[in-house]
């Protein structure tokens, strides 16, 4: 799986904008399948630090597109396990250091492939070892989570920890109450959340904080109207969403903003049709893939979040996505009874 941008360029010609746009499912499947064949590009090597995230993005997009078999299952599992370290953490690629971000992607991939048992059968220490790595990164004083042993904290890591541990049924390994109160301490006057206490609201961070509260079953702490107002103001005249006031629209915020609105039952506060249309204009109709905005090069990150956004908006022909986990609903239903 590669994070190399291109080869296609998102965006259909201006005259197409008024026509009905389709989702080019087959093109996107071909695009994602072709990503790992680009080792003759320098960028393939320069983006190795995102490889495992890339597999999660590609695999999830393929599931949502209704092509779950498009990536070879065994090879994918082999690659994921080749990133596992002794301590239960996963790196971005073989030889890269263990970190929360890749450990979460690894768990999401294995769960999606129904392959968590491979951790036991291949004598990799079982899922408990992975759970212990994640739990070891909680700061017992504040409830927040570090990304790795070097100590950076970020609400992204807290969300990742709750996401992965709940998928593994291992949330008892952490202090959930403290984690929740840390999230609460990151709330701002606009109803949003930041990267840490005191930090400005940011749609990506709001997704992680609201998602964490959803997993902890503590959405009662969210000021839904206030947050809903702030989030719905992210929609710009072209239908796209931005991540903060006075910023440009970007396809990936289709996910962070819209999924947060969905979690607080306010998705109807934006114009879904206009948003879907914006996402569709970011496709490359000939070579597949989506870009952050029309005219830019496509990449698998925006391809994934664009498709997940469309799924959330119930675009026809797509599998349903779970707004909390950003995984196919079929998968989270299989693993988590209450979903």
């Amino acid at each position: 799986m590669s994070l190399v941008s291109g080869p296609g360029r998102g965006g259909t010609h201006a005259h197409d904008l008024h026509q009905k746009l389709d989702l080019f499912t087959d093109k996107h499947v071909t695009y994602i399948k072709s990503l790992d064949t680009r080792r003759n590009e320098l960028e393939y090597w320069l983006t190795e630090h995102l490889r495992l995230n890339g597999v999660y993005w590609g695999l999830t997009a393929l599931h949502l597109l209704g092509h779950p078999e498009a990536l070879p299952r065994d090879e994918t599992i082999d690659f994921v396990l080749s990133c596992l370290h002794e301590n239960g953490g996963f790196g971005a690629a073989p030889g890269h250091d263990p970190h929360m971000l890749y450990t979460v992607s690894a768990v999401q991939i294995l769960v999606t492939l129904d392959a968590i048992d491979e951790l036991s059968t291949r004598n990799k220490g079982g899922k408990e070892k992975v759970g212990q790595f994640i739990a070891s990164l909680q700061d017992v004083r504040t409830g927040s989570f570090c990304g790795d042993e070097w100590g950076e904290t970020d609400t992204r890591f807290l969300y990742g920890a709750l996401n992965a541990l709940s998928l593994l049924h291992l949330t008892h390994l952490i202090d959930m109450e403290k984690a929740v109160s840390h999230v609460a301490s990151c709330a701002n006057f606009d109803g949003g959340y930041g990267i840490s206490a005191g930090a400005e609201s940011h749609a990506g961070q709001i997704f992680t904080c609201v998602g964490a509260l959803a997993i902890a079953n503590r959405l009662d702490l969210v000021d839904r109207n206030k947050l809903g107002i702030w989030l719905s103001e992210r929609q710009l005249p072209n239908g796209g969403l931005n991540g903060r006031p006075e910023k440009l629209e970007d396809v990936c915020y289709s996910w962070w903003v819209a999924s947060s609105l969905a979690m607080i039952d306010r998705l109807h506060w934006i114009d879904s049709e206009k948003l879907a249309k914006f996402i569709l204009t970011c496709q490359d109709p000939s070579m597949g893939g989506l870009a952050d905005r029309p005219g830019d090069m496509v990449d698998v990150f925006h391809t994934h979040f664009g498709i997940a956004g469309l799924s959330l908006l119930q675009y026809p022909g797509l599998e349903e996505v779970d707004p909390v986990y950003c995984m196919p609903r079929k998968v989270t239903r299989r693993v988590l009874e209450h979903r």
């Binding site: 994070l3 941008s5 291109g6 080869p7 296609g8 680009r38 003759n40 590009e41 320098l42 960028e43 090597w45 320069l46 983006t47 995102l50 995230n53 971000l101 979460v104 992204r156 990742g160 990506g204 990936c252 952050d292 830019d296 090069m297 990449d299 990150f301």
Partner: peptide, 27 residues
């Protein structure tokens, strides 16, 4: 999770054989 600013280079299909050789050298 998220990363932005993935560099947007020109597509490999647009490259000459010399450019491709130079790219392999850089890799």
């Amino acid at each position: 999770m998220a990363s932005h600013g993935v560099p947007r280079t020109s597509a490999p299909t647009e490259r000459t054989p010399q450019a491709q050789a130079a790219e392999l050298q850089k890799i």
